[in-house]
Simulated assay, not measured.
Amino acid sequence: MAQPKKAASIWDVARLAGVSHQTVSRVVNGSPRVAAATRDKVLEAIAELGYRPNRLARSLAGGAVESVTVLTADTSLYGPEAALRGIEKAARSLEWSVSISVLDPADTHSDADIIARLPRAGEPTIIMAHDEPGMRAKQVLLDTQPQAMVAIGPYTAEELAASPWLVGMDDGKAAAEATRYLLDLGHATVHHLAIPTSTGTFGGGKAHRADGWARVLREAGREVPAPVPSGWTITEAFKAVRPLVADPSVTAILCGNDHLALATLRAAHLAGRSVPGDLSIVGFDNTPFSAFTTPALTTVNQDFESVGRGAFELLRHRVDGAIPRPRPSWPEPELIVRETSGPPSPRS
């Protein structure tokens, strides 16, 4: 009978990374007294070997048993769900525990209620700040424990550069790229099916995807149609987009996410409009189903899992209070061209 594979030890990690076992211990315990390049080598070795520090042994030795709380309003959306997966993987590799507290968008959360959701004062916290509850929680914790929190959300490159506690991707830039692509195909203009902004409205607050879309149309001297507001769900999007899809003058729609694009694809089918012959559709987020729709969805890929890992790395660094390190990096958003986009029909 095959012998079970022996678990990797701290000495195995040290040997692979080319460092001492004391250095591995410092990295595992979050010590700031490790050079960035050395820390990265050790973390790569830990991931490659699947090393799991003994939490009980660390606790009995007087070491801290670290934890992080994630505040989010919705774990069913693809972006938050994928970012949570990245946080959990990064935390698990260093034996941190992860707890999740859901902020109900229908509730009015007081400052005291938000703080009470943390297991203890100063608990390291990552906030999904893509909606109104997340934005409120971000402000409360920024006021009360700024060194123990980071916020994930849609931010411009300028916002990310100016704030050491923000993590995200410039999806306004990505929306601009998608809009420019549709114009280059020959569409006279591009309509937009919009997700709610960070304040839960469509006329104000953060709306980076809509901003990037509108900016490109203005720069190209094209008509900027009024964005069509939708909620987060396919049902809401389907109801909102049907009048737009029924208009034969509409030849291209940029959707706020892939679920909205799926609703648009269905509405086009029911309206008897071919995709992409009569109507081009571009989604956002590159959700797992997007490659398997019929036709396959053109969309913007965003590496939310890497954002989650980067948020956890940045949080640990801020809690350590170490000398500033470069901000974690991840792939830029990328337009994935599939089958739902093409030149407008000559009869359009």
Rank of each mutant, 00 (worst) to 15 (best):
S290F: 02
T299L: 06
V282P: 10
A296Y: 08
A296K: 05
T294D: 14
A291K: 09
S306G: 12
I281R: 03
G308N: 06
R309G: 14
I281N: 06
D285Y: 02
I281Q: 06
F304Q: 11
V307D: 11
S280G: 13
V307A: 14
P295I: 12
F292E: 07
I281V: 15
D285A: 03
T294I: 06
E305I: 01
L297R: 06
T287A: 15
D303F: 14
S306K: 10
D285E: 12
F284D: 05
L297C: 09
A296R: 12
E305G: 12
T298E: 05
N301R: 14
F284E: 04
G308T: 03
L279N: 05
L297H: 08
L279R: 03
T298Y: 05
T287R: 10
T298H: 10
D303W: 12
I281C: 07
A311K: 05
S306R: 13
T298Q: 08
P295R: 10
G308Y: 03
D303L: 03
S280T: 12
T287L: 01
V300T: 12
E313N: 02
S290R: 02
T299F: 04
E313M: 02
G308K: 04
F312W: 09
E305V: 01
N301E: 15
E313Q: 13
T287P: 01
E313H: 10
T299R: 03
S290T: 08
R309N: 03
I281W: 11
F284S: 04
E305T: 10
D285G: 00
F312E: 02
L279V: 07
Q302T: 15
V307L: 14
A311W: 13
S280M: 05
G308S: 06
T293K: 03
N286A: 15
S280N: 11
A311T: 08
E305M: 13
T299C: 05
R309S: 15
V307R: 06
T294K: 00
N301Q: 15
T287D: 11
N286F: 08
F284I: 05
P288W: 11
G283V: 13
S280A: 14
V282K: 10
L297M: 14
F284C: 06
V300S: 07
N301Y: 14
T293M: 00
A296T: 08
F284Q: 03
P288H: 13
F304L: 12
T298S: 15
D303Q: 13
P295S: 11
G283R: 06
F292K: 03
P295H: 10
V307W: 09
F312C: 01
N286K: 02
E313K: 01
V282N: 04
P295K: 10
P288N: 13
E313D: 15
